[in-house]
Design a protein around this nucleic acid. Sequence first.
DNA 1: CCGAGAGTTGACCGACCGGTCGACTTGTTC
DNA 2: GAACAAGTCGACCGGTCGGTCAACTCTCGG
Lengths: 202, 202
Amino acid sequence: MNQTLDTRTRILSTARELFHGRSYADVGIKEICELAQVQKGSFYHFFPSKQDLAMAVIDNMADDWAHGFVAEAFDRDLPPLERLDYLVDAAYYWQKAAKDLEGRMPGCLFGNLALEISTRDEVIRARINAVFEKASARFDETLEEAVSMGLMPALDTAATAQAMLAYLEGVILLAKSRNDPEVVRILGPAIKTLRIELPLTN
Amino acid sequence: MNQTLDTRTRILSTARELFHGRSYADVGIKEICELAQVQKGSFYHFFPSKQDLAMAVIDNMADDWAHGFVAEAFDRDLPPLERLDYLVDAAYYWQKAAKDLEGRMPGCLFGNLALEISTRDEVIRARINAVFEKASARFDETLEEAVSMGLMPALDTAATAQAMLAYLEGVILLAKSRNDPEVVRILGPAIKTLRIELPLTN
DNA sequence: CCGAGAGTTGACCGACCGGTCGACTTGTTC
DNA sequence: GAACAAGTCGACCGGTCGGTCAACTCTCGG
């Protein structure tokens, strides 16, 4: 049973690493199996298809995020606006570490998969979208708190939250296309300047 | 000779459409040839490899952009800040038209290719990056003009220009992952709120 | 000690991939 | 009309793709 979990986990984390570092289409099941030291038959014992593997990878990464640096960044003990800086810092250091190690910036797994797959696979697209919605909700909480504490003038927190998430993804995209994590450090902090006004209600 | 150009052009525009609507890896040369009504041998007469085709597609799209809506949006006769709105509008209508026609949002070809390929192919990555740098320069011009006209307080125009480009790409990414162009319309205008201050010099 | 289910193995499948090649057609030039 | 280059054609190549399968081992409850 321990060995069972090990095999599945090995496949999962190997796939995650490869998908993140390259792309979904570019990584074959054979390669995953070789790196994970698993036979092909065993692979298909745990995952009915490559698509299922992708879903599992997405869930796995989303989980790690939720319990990892996202939880730290959105820590309710931090002043709201500092959470945004923390998040940008975390993104920067992560990308920088990856680049120093492997020579190239992997970017954001979810952003990568979204652009690569979401025109071809509705199921995966929806799954990634759900991850983004959750992330957006964390931004929203933060903004609401900032507003209620009087740290920011009133604004459309839900829309601004999405704008901030979009900006973060965009900054990582640009940094990846330049293969330079410094882009994140330089452009990232401007996330706090984004504002979408409340719709006029009268 | 006319027929020659026709064949090459047919391959190019077919490939562009397919790459944009799906992805680089997902589209095979065979499929491109079939849609373009060209034989494989002819394909390799014009393009030495799939990579060369990708480069040609990038150049072709960048050209169309530069002479198309980018030229319109960054029209020097428009007030600087209106150019940004024009650009967001253009992005919105384009994505919306594509979605109405094909049911899915293709997103931005350059963003898509950047995230899919730039970890695997330095040459293509650099080419896409060059396109982004040119786009960023257009933003920069616009911001400099706005500042010199007193429409905006002084700011780091070069960095803010990059931030705006990143934001636009991020908004399109988020919209694609939701398969909903309205995201562009709602989040897009906030591009004007982005600011990166000038570095302190004293 | 047996049987059953979970997990493992690796050979094998048809389809498809990017790319090659030699034969052929067409248009141009002298 | 000979000569040549440009362009066209489609069969063919080795390799890889995602996925299948029957046979095997291991573990553990009864």
